[in-house]
């Protein structure tokens, strides 16, 4: 796996290991970001049970602080793992590229536009840098966390609710996969329009990632509705 990454993204040993680490850090952060939902779940539950007394204040205070600290730590680790590591790696990549150029046959330099070569060398490195620090760990990490979170939801909550939350994930991936080949082919007008669709889908995918988090919160409803019926019956009994 490490070797495959090294080849695909032009990484050194350490760079590949760092990238894997960054992916897991993103996944970890995403999962930590689910903890607030647990706190809120408890809050609503207490409210519905009419059990939200002042005596619970310290408990909530500690829970909230703990979660906030955990989030800060997770973000700190993730920041280090994705940004610091890639920028260190980028220096290594540029130097190894320079070494490689030095070893090319002499005739190569007579034939190639040197400006182009330099542009390629520097520009592509910057691109790979951005991809490695921003997109790739973010993408793979959120994939991991989405799978973990959705699995727990399918197991512990109503599977129909979970399905309602997560159908967007495979659909958007399918859409992106479907259109990813298109960019490689020479664009004509139809393809260009298709690319617009792709971009639209991408933004939907971005939104769906957050809406997954949102909808998970909505899954509280189910419990809510059940409770509300109980509450109502209790009220009517009182009356």
């Amino acid at each position: 796996m490490i070797e495959k990454l090294m080849r695909k993204y032009a990484l050194s040993d350490r760079g590949a290991a760092d990238m894997i680490k960054a992916c897991f850090c993103v996944a970890f952060t995403n999962i930590v970001l689910m903890l607030p939902v647990a706190v809120l779940y408890k809050l609503i539950k207490d409210m519905m049970d009419n059990a939200l007394s002042k005596s619970k204040l310290p408990m909530y205070l500690i829970m909230c602080l703990a979660v906030i600290i955990l989030m800060a730590v997770a973000h700190y680790i993730q920041y280090n793992a994705s940004f610091l590591a890639t920028y260190t790696e980028s220096g290594v990549r540029r130097i190894s590229l320079a070494e490689k150029i030095r070893k090319l046959p002499h005739s190569f330099f007579g034939k190639k536009d040197l400006t182009d070569l330099t542009t390629t060398m520097m520009g592509d490195c910057t691109q790979v840098e951005t991809a490695a620090s921003h997109w790739i760990p973010e993408m793979i990490g959120s994939l991991i966390s989405t799978v973990v979170i959705s699995a727990t939801m399918f197991i512990f909550f109503d599977w129909r609710m979970a399905l309602a939350c997560f159908w967007v994930v495979p659909v958007s991936f399918f859409a992106i996969w479907l259109s990813s080949g298109m960019e490689k082919k020479p664009p004509n007008i139809i393809r260009r329009q298709c690319l617009n669709w792709k971009k639209a889908f991408r933004s939907v995918w971005n939104q769906s990632r957050t809406s997954v988090l949102t909808i998970i919160r909505i899954s509280i409803w189910k419990v809510l509705i059940k409770r509300s019926k109980m509450l109502k019956s209790r009220h009517s009994m009182l009356r």
Binding site: P36, V39, C64
Partner: peptide, 8 residues
């Protein structure tokens, strides 16, 4: 991401 604490 800390809005939850403020709601609580």
């Amino acid at each position: 991401n800390a809005i939850f604490a403020f709601i609580a």
